Simulated assay, not measured.
Amino acid sequence: MAALLLVTVTACGPSGGSDQKSLLHERVFIGGKTDQPGFNLHAAHTDRGLEVDLANYLGKEIGFKSKFHDVISAKREQELKDGTSDLVIATYSITPDRKEQVDFVGPYLVTGQGFLIREKYKGIKTEKDVAGKIICTVEGSTSAVAQLPRGTILHIEPDYSSCVDKLQGGAVQAVFTDEALLYGFVEQYKNSKHPLKVAPGITSGLINRYGIGLPKGHTADCKKLLRALRTYLTEEWAADVKVQLQALVHAYPGDWENRFRPDPEDLNRYSSCET
């Protein structure tokens, strides 16, 4: 009986590791932000964007079908801890604090941070101009804890589409988050009454590296995802970015790959496993 108990504890103990049941079963539930154009936008019963393309590629390589559901920034760790999501692919930046709670595979995109403004707005030309302005960002994001100029009035929303609605309505002067993400909204609103742009030449906050989040301890799954991601970055990443993030490519002709494609060495440096 003692020997049987020891075997049970070893297989199910907190160290987990490759003994844990695989997450990559026939249907994989993925927490995503389904209101982010360019990355994952759910419309007309269809998900479209770079993260959808990535999930479909991983599924093809590993052997699963992905099912996205919406998750807000502040709940991503909890989604993985309580099993609501098998994976999170949601412009999810890899940080030391987050890696204490969940594991990551990535990055699959690297980006600085910037400010989204109305195309005709002249009030923000340098980072110092942000002082005294109402700037919208999202709870649970790296942007919400970034150091902005003293006097900046931070307005917090649960998601970036709400921030962009506030910007369109004139309630805030800018939206602050990852530059790559902002260009998705530039593309979405290019023919609107109030077209948007990323304030040129202004960067602030962190360099963010987007990763695939998974619960702690699934080493075998981590390695499978990492191998597939390496192939994706070589074979299909550039073509998918050209299709899904057209405004970003247009903003940096000839240089967008250097700016936003991860260094291959970063995958071992930032992932929770190595291959």
Rank of each mutant, 00 (worst) to 15 (best):
D159P: 06
D82N: 13
E79Q: 04
F115S: 13
D86P: 00
L80G: 02
T126K: 08
K128R: 15
V71L: 12
V138A: 13
L167M: 13
E119M: 06
E77H: 09
H69S: 08
E127F: 14
A55E: 05
K75N: 07
A131S: 15
V130C: 11
H69P: 06
C163E: 05
I124G: 13
E51H: 04
L58F: 02
A44Q: 11
T142H: 07
G123Y: 04
E127H: 12
V102Y: 06
V105G: 04
P149C: 09
V164F: 11
K125D: 14
N56F: 00
G132H: 03
D97K: 07
F68K: 00
Y121F: 15
L80E: 02
K75S: 06
G132Q: 03
Y160H: 15
E127K: 14
S66L: 00
E100N: 15
G151N: 14
I134N: 09
S143W: 08
E77M: 09
Q147Y: 06
E119R: 06
L87W: 03
T137I: 04
R76N: 09
K120M: 10
Q147A: 06
K133M: 15
D53L: 03
I117H: 05
T95S: 14
F64A: 02
L54P: 02
G140Q: 09
P149T: 08
K81N: 13
G63H: 03
I153W: 12
D97Y: 07
L148V: 08
Y121G: 11
H45Q: 15
G83K: 01
N56M: 02
V105C: 05
A43R: 02
Y57E: 09
S85L: 01
P107C: 08
D86I: 00
K133Y: 14
D47F: 02
E100H: 14
G132E: 06
Y57N: 07
L167V: 13
T126N: 10
V52W: 00
L80D: 01
A146I: 01
P149L: 10
I134H: 12
G112Q: 08
K60R: 08
T95G: 11
Q113A: 15
V164P: 12
K133H: 15
Y92C: 02
T91Y: 02
F104A: 01
V105Q: 03
V88P: 06
K122I: 12
E139M: 14
V105I: 08
I94L: 12
K166P: 06
S143Y: 10
K99G: 14
S162V: 10
L87C: 08
Q147E: 11
K120F: 07
L116D: 09
I153E: 15
E51L: 03
I72N: 08
S161D: 15
R150Y: 11
H155G: 05
V105M: 05
E77W: 03
E100F: 09
G114D: 09
L154N: 09
E119W: 03
A144M: 10
G63Q: 04
A90M: 08
G106S: 14
A55G: 11
T142W: 05
R48W: 05
K120G: 13
R98H: 12
L109K: 01
S66G: 12
S66K: 00
D82Y: 06
D165V: 13
L87S: 05
F64G: 02
L58W: 01
A74M: 05
Q113S: 15
Q78H: 10
